[in-house]
Write a protein that binds this DNA or RNA. Structure first.
Length: 204
DNA sequence: GAGTACCA
DNA sequence: CATA
């Protein structure tokens, strides 16, 4: 467990293979309940290359008309999100100094060609709570900078089972995914990468 | 703008 | 929607 930039806590190999398998099983149920959707950029309607679903009381969604937001239901089916996976809550309890539970678990599915541009997580009311992320499946090249877009950046690889927490000075750091390394994991039979992002949305 | 292009 |  170490800091790559101030406030970024990186815990490589945090989850065992058995724990990763349990999470994947929970996520299969989550996708049955609330299928992966393709978010779109506000105003332009441009599609993200990543597909998403959510678990927990609130889910992050985006479309052309209403932009980035959290809501309690799937944007296409209107169904509520699946419950937060048991292990996700346990990881939050173990890693996070912020003891109120997370309300959102955004599930991002990256095919080999998917990317995530540099961005900040700033759609939450409560920036005192950290953002906790779990990686499953193929490895990726992750990039992180500072709280201004012009800040210099560093990149490093994330592998299946790694946990990461953005807290303190890194809570609002720009970050993104440059590249997925296809075929680097056997966890997901169809390949690709799943990332779980746990967030407190409302003030506790 | 969590988009893209480009750069290192 | 909202901000750059």
């Amino acid at each position: 467990m170490h800091e790559i930039v101030p406030g970024l806590v990186y815990a490589p190999g945090y989850l065992s293979r058995e724990e990763q398998d349990e999470l994947v099983a929970d996520l299969r149920e989550a996708v049955k309940q609330a299928p992966l959707f393709t978010p779109r950029m506000p105003r332009t309607g441009k599609e993200f290359s990543v597909r998403m679903t959510n678990c927990g009381a609130l889910g992050w969604v985006s479309d052309r008309e209403r932009g980035y937001r959290y809501q309690a239901t799937h944007p296409e089916t209107g169904a509520p999100w699946s419950p937060m996976p048991r292990l996700a809550l346990r990881v939050w309890d173990d890693l996070s100094p912020y003891k109120h539970p997370p309300e959102a678990c955004l599930v991002n599915f990256y095919e080999a060609s998917a990317r995530m541009g540099l961005h900040q997580d700033r759609d939450e009311e409560d920036f005192d709570a950290p953002v906790v992320s779990l990686s499953l499946g193929d490895s990726c090249l992750f990039r992180i900078g500072g709280t201004e877009r012009k800040s210099s950046t560093k990149s490093f690889k994330l592998h299946s089972g790694d946990a990461m927490m953005l807290t303190g000075p890194a809570r609002l750091a720009f970050h993104g995914v440059d590249r997925i390394m296809g075929g680097t994991s056997t966890l997901l039979p169809q390949g690709g990468r799943l990332n779980l992002t746990l967030r407190r949305v409302t003030k506790a």
